[in-house]
Nucleic acid binder design. Structure first.
Length: 271
DNA sequence: CTTTGCACCTGTTGGC
DNA sequence: TGCCAACAGGTGCAAA
């Protein structure tokens, strides 16, 4: 479910309720997430004040004086703030009980998400240290993308979804960005010129910015930190619109598979 | 090093 | 109406 806009929406929803609060207890109901929830997470957070809630790629970082909790929502995860005594459902795997009488609850039916702990600020963690730039930062520009694409035979869609190149571009927004840039998703990355590279960078920034402003995309079960759904779905240009008319030219949108992921594009607008 | 395909897991959907 | 295969927002890792 969550791509970068959803994670950022979640961060903005929960940060005001967590920042400066102390964690009274950590309840692990199901430790079998993508990796086992480590005892160090419980030990590190319990009794500790959360100093800041940050985001790097699709990870949420809860910063404390003792170390940093890393949370990832995988495909189906969500975080909500609830009253601490709210009964837990089947997929409510983790609670951070706060000194406010509320708790931050991680729900994740497919358990592809993660809750990890690291000493330090988290950026040195093996999962984060090799990541590419944030898509909305100045570090992600045409120079960077053009260099990353040079000599690559990989489909451009797969390349922009590679977190070593740029983080936060998931399956929905990859299709959306390529439509905006007028680039065929299966074009070899190395065969895209400088000018179209610039267009693609701008398209990615635009799509992600719009989606964050709309509070993310709701497909099935996404809810932000405040429990409200996002509204970007109604603005999707190609994703999930197989056979429906292109909003620009009316040609039916096509669906193909690229790198084992569904890909949507307009055969007329994208070359 | 690059590219491909799989694995993890549960719930929903669409076609017969 | 009911069943079951196909598919779903991510991403690390093994194998080619």
């Amino acid at each position: 479910m969550p791509e970068l806009p959803e994670v950022e929406t979640t961060r903005r929803g929960i940060a005001p309720h967590l920042t400066g609060r102390r964690v009274r207890a950590v309840v692990v109901r199901e430790p079998r997430l993508r990796w086992p929830v480590p005892a160090a997470l419980v030990e590190g957070l319990t009794g500790t004040r959360i100093e800041a809630v940050e985001r790097r790629a699709k990870y949420l970082l809860l910063r404390t004086a003792r170390g940093t909790a890393l949370l990832h929502l995988g495909m189906s995860g969500s975080l909500r703030l609830l009253k601490a005594d709210t009964p837990a459902g089947k997929h409510d795997h983790l609670d951070l009980v706060l000194d406010t009488g509320h708790c931050l609850r991680l729900t994740d039916p497919r358990r592809f998400g993660a809750a990890l702990w690291c000493e330090g600020d988290g950026h040195d963690h093996a999962l984060l240290s090799g990541l590419g730039p944030e898509p909305l930062s100045d570090a992600f520009d045409a120079d960077h993308l053009h260099t990353a694409m040079h000599g690559r035979k990989l489909a451009v869609k797969a390349l922009i979804m590679d977190a070593h190149v740029v983080v936060g571009v998931g399956n929905i927004y990859a299709s959306e960005s390529l439509f905006l840039a007028g680039i065929h998703p299966q074009r070899a990355a190395g065969r895209i010129g400088r000018a179209r590279c610039e267009r693609l960078v701008q398209a990615i920034k635009q799509v992600l910015t719009e989606a964050i402003a709309a509070g993310g995309t709701t497909l099935r079960d996404f809810v932000g930190g405040d429990g409200k759904p996002g509204y970007f779905a109604q603005e999707l240009r190609v994703y999930g619109r197989t056979g429906e008319p292109c909003r620009a030219c009316g040609t039916p949108i096509r669906q193909i598979t690229t790198g084992q992921r569904s890909t949507y594009y307009c055969p007329r607008c994208q070359r």
